[in-house]
Design a protein around this nucleic acid. Sequence first.
DNA 1: TTACATGTAATCATGATAGTTACTTTATGT
DNA 2: ACATAAAGTAACTATCATGATTACATGTAA
Lengths: 150, 150
Amino acid sequence: MSISSRFAVGIHILALIEINKEGISSSEFLAGSVNTNPAVIRKIMGMLKKAGLVEVHPGIAGAKLARDLSDITLLDVYKAVNVVQENELFSVHEEPNPACTVGRNIQDTIGPLFTAAQLALEKTLRNVTLEDVVKDIVDKDKINSKELSN
Amino acid sequence: MSISSRFAVGIHILALIEINKEGISSSEFLAGSVNTNPAVIRKIMGMLKKAGLVEVHPGIAGAKLARDLSDITLLDVYKAVNVVQENELFSVHEEPNPACTVGRNIQDTIGPLFTAAQLALEKTLRNVTLEDVVKDIVDKDKINSKELSN
DNA sequence: TTACATGTAATCATGATAGTTACTTTATGT
DNA sequence: ACATAAAGTAACTATCATGATTACATGTAA
């Protein structure tokens, strides 16, 4: 099991739109960087648009960020791309036996515990903004360039 | 996407072995409570056994806990049933374009962020023991019984 | 109206899940 | 020794999400 790479791709897309803000970020351009099919980008872009993270219009090439970089958290992206349904990161067997003490209580006992774990994860994602991500990408790139030039 | 119900079933199994400790917890008995096939239980039991959480022997009916209830955390169960590979809760697109600033740095930037989120989730699971779970199940059952008798 | 980009649907291969059946291996009791 | 019973395990199935691909409809602008 793994959370869909749509999440990682969504972050990639948004970061690239920012870094390429002087240029035009078409689905083809973005697909070239992510290394996938433009239709995949457009589908994810549709989700980001629906969530109010990007502005993009039919017939007009290029996407723009709809909010300030520092106002978009990883949690926003995570929610936007629907990698996990609301409160369903963990799945629970649906029909335990009600004739058993454990069977008739396990769901109510486990539910809040799973929710707590999920919230801890989401809280971590909420503490990182796209601004942080872009800065880190740029920093890492400077270091790599320096290494190459030595 | 959802984390496999093997995790929830694993917790169910262990809790039931404890509550039924005066009796014999065969795969058929456990399957009856979880409401699934005994072979499914045996497969999960094999994982719990491999992780040192239960004792179970071929030809001998019934499983026993291999550790004290208070010494088994939900994280132990989570790891035991292999619902998530080590450090791979989130998946990242494999081959971003190295000719792009974002493409050649996205993995290194995102990796630690995803790991942090995953660790936050795991930390939460580590803070809950099977003793807590069993107590809660028993408590909830008392309340339910009281409601039914009113 | 031509060119081009987005929006979107249909199709496909792949992999994980959970269930089912059936068989082998091991231990116990007569 | 043999019959019984349970664990261990492999093979097969249906179902579902993913990610890629193709194709086409929709919309914009020169």
